[in-house]
Amino acid sequence: MSEPLMVNIELDYSEIKNILDNHASRESTKRLLRTELSRLEALKKSFTNKATKTIPTEAELIPLSNFAWDQTDKFVKIYLSLDDVKEPFEDHSIKLIFPDESSFRIVLGRYKFTLTKLHEKINTQESYFKRTKSKIVIYLKKKREANWSNIQYSKPTTVYDEKDKEDPDADPSTALMSLMKKMYQEGDDEMKRTIAKSWYEAQHKKEPEIDLP
C-alpha cells in the first residue's frame, strides 16, 4: 500500500467519523457508517503492520546469481530478471549499495545481488538502477571511458612451458643460441631480420657459427 493511499484512508476515516458523531440521526445510516469505519481501521492496521515489518538481516537475504551485462562507452549495464525473485517487493525496498568503487550490491526485498572486483573503477555517484515489469537494470558509470573485456577483473595468466626451463649445468652460449633459434622460428619478419643481422655480425667476429633454421 502506498503512502498517498494511506493519507486518503485517514481523510476518509476522519470525515466519516465526523458525520457519524455530529450529523447522522437514523440508526440504519449509523450502522453503515460504523461498518465503513471498521473497514478503514482494518486497512490502516494492515498498512501499519507492513510498514513496521522487520527488515531482513544480511544473513537472511537470498543471493541471486544469474545476470547478463553489456556496455556503452560510458556505462556498464547489469540485467537481473525478476523471474528469479519469488517474493514481491516494493520499489522503496530496493537499495543500491557501493562498498567501494570496484563493487556493488543491490537489495530487492528479501533478495540480494553482489558483484565485487569489477574490471575497472566506477563512478558511484552517477550510477543508478531502473525497474521494469520483467527486470532490474543497473547502470554503472565508468570512471574511465574504455571497453571492458570482462565484467570482473582477472590477473593475466602466463603460460609456462616446461621446455623453457633452464638447465643450470648447460653452457650459457649454447642456451643463448637455442633461445635465439626459438625466437627466430616464432618471430615475425622484423624479428627474423634483426636476428639474422645479429648472426651475420657474430659470424664475422668469428663467434660460434649458428645454422639458420
Rank of each mutant, 00 (worst) to 15 (best):
4 P>I: 01
60 E>Y: 05
95 K>R: 13
137 V>R: 11
31 R>Y: 06
102 S>E: 13
183 M>I: 11
7 V>P: 02
158 T>S: 12
201 E>V: 09
185 Q>W: 00
167 D>H: 07
157 T>M: 14
67 F>R: 08
180 M>E: 11
205 K>E: 10
134 S>K: 15
81 S>V: 03
83 D>T: 10
117 K>G: 14
153 Y>E: 13
85 V>I: 13
180 M>T: 07
193 R>V: 12
75 F>P: 00
134 S>L: 07
73 D>P: 00
160 Y>V: 15
113 F>E: 05
64 L>Q: 08
125 Q>H: 06
98 F>G: 04
130 K>Q: 14
207 E>L: 14
73 D>T: 12
72 T>M: 02
10 E>P: 00
29 T>E: 09
9 I>Q: 01
174 T>Q: 15
204 H>V: 00
116 T>I: 05
40 L>H: 07
41 E>I: 05
168 P>C: 04
116 T>P: 00
175 A>Q: 12
108 L>R: 04
7 V>Q: 14
16 I>G: 00
153 Y>M: 11
21 D>K: 07
63 P>R: 10
109 G>V: 05
119 H>W: 12
172 P>S: 04
104 F>H: 02
174 T>I: 15
165 K>V: 09
138 I>M: 08
202 A>Q: 08
48 T>P: 05
152 Q>N: 14
25 S>R: 10
71 Q>L: 04
111 Y>L: 01
86 K>E: 12
124 T>M: 05
7 V>N: 10
174 T>E: 15
172 P>C: 05
79 Y>V: 12
38 S>A: 15
94 I>G: 04
206 K>W: 01
98 F>D: 02
197 K>F: 10
49 N>E: 14
165 K>C: 05
41 E>N: 11
56 P>E: 01
1 M>E: 06
78 I>Q: 03
111 Y>T: 03
130 K>W: 02
61 L>Y: 07
167 D>Y: 08
104 F>N: 03
131 R>C: 11
29 T>C: 01
168 P>R: 05
135 K>R: 14
26 R>S: 06
178 S>L: 09
97 I>C: 01
128 Y>V: 02
96 L>A: 03
21 D>L: 13
131 R>L: 14
